[in-house]
Write a protein that binds this DNA or RNA. Structure first.
Lengths: 191, 191
DNA sequence: GTCTATAGGTGGATAGAC
DNA sequence: GTCTATCCACCTATAGAC
């Protein structure tokens, strides 16, 4: 019962973070969307920052669920492509929460949240392993530091090119995904 | 005299937008940084949105200045690389103002600002010409729509991977620039 | 745990004197 | 055009009854 309610809250936060970002999101909106009073929200989560953290934990769990179902025997680079594809799909569907990386109180809350930190670490370890394996097999560029490749993947979750292309309205979501995915792995140069 | 003061204002706005973003920037801060009263600011610019627009016009002018000095006889792709390099340099120096693309009142102000719209159009035409020329010479992938390539360049101005790598503190700015530039044009795959 | 009501603070914008 | 002083709306968070 409590779990169901908190899920509803975090779901609403996720949607609002994806739609308007952390600063523009208000706690009143969250409460209204869930259909409870604002004061009730604060019984579940102590601050707006903690609401955001819960949304990030939620999306990371979904990512972990997706990752855990990928074939262990596939080429590492193919699994990495699948993860980036999943990220883009979530973003294109308007379900990817984004946070301002400059906000210090928000950063402090995230850093102090074990669920967030552990999830981030686990995902980074999993992807990092695939990255190094792919580099060893010469499927990903061995000259780039693995951490730079990892960050490049993470940055796809907030890549403005997706919004630009969606706002332009010239391409369907499926094609946007393919273009960004291609650009990410193959680059803009001709082959 | 008025021009000098307004330059100082826009310069301060540019710095604050680069540092903390539109939502976190306050008009009080801008006034304090310039050293004038907030009410005086509003004699020069009618709203916070117009302040942001002026900062965007400023950075676009600087981009146009840079573009206009590029060799007309160089390979188009080389000029494009130089532009992306310039963008990354500005961003790495902490001088690239960024705006939330979801904010509707801000978008309306930008759309209604002829200086902004004209500058954006001019830059897009210039880069678009190079992109199509590069594709015709098979220097850039001919299968990608030119507009998608253009947006991919624009998105480098707010690519989070730069912040991630800078926060990590593992690489000097020069190396970050080369990694992002390489990833952008060559992709993550091994060659 | 849910509500109503409100505290406490901040930020964009303006009034009006000089 | 610059200032001081202020308005007013909104936002995070909390008090306190039920």
């Amino acid at each position: 019962m409590l779990q169901v309610r908190e899920d509803a809250i975090v779901h609403a936060v996720n949607r609002l973070l994806a739609e308007k970002g952390f600063d523009a999101m208000t706690v009143d909106e969250v409460a209204a969307q869930v259909g409870i009073a604002k004061a009730s929200l604060y019984k579940h989560f102590p601050s707006k920052e903690d609401l955001a953290a819960a949304a990030m934990v939620r999306v990371m769990r979904r990512a972990q669920d997706f990752i855990s179902e990928l074939p262990a025997d596939a080429a590492p680079v193919e699994n990495l492509r699948a993860v980036v594809r999943w990220v883009l799909q979530v973003k294109l569907a308007g379900d990817m929460p984004t946070l301002p990386s400059q906000n210090s109180s928000l950063r402090a809350t995230l850093m102090g949240n074990p669920d967030y930190m552990d999830g981030l670490m686990e995902i980074s370890d999993q992807l990092g392993g695939w990255i190094e394996a792919a580099q060893a097999r010469n499927e990903l560029s061995p000259t780039l530091p693995a951490i730079a490749i990892l960050y490049t993947f993470y940055a796809r979750a907030c890549d403005s090119v997706v919004e630009f292309l969606q706002m332009g309205g010239l391409f369907p979501d499926e094609q946007i995904m393919e273009m960004v995915l291609t650009t990410c792995f193959e680059g803009l140069n001709a082959r």
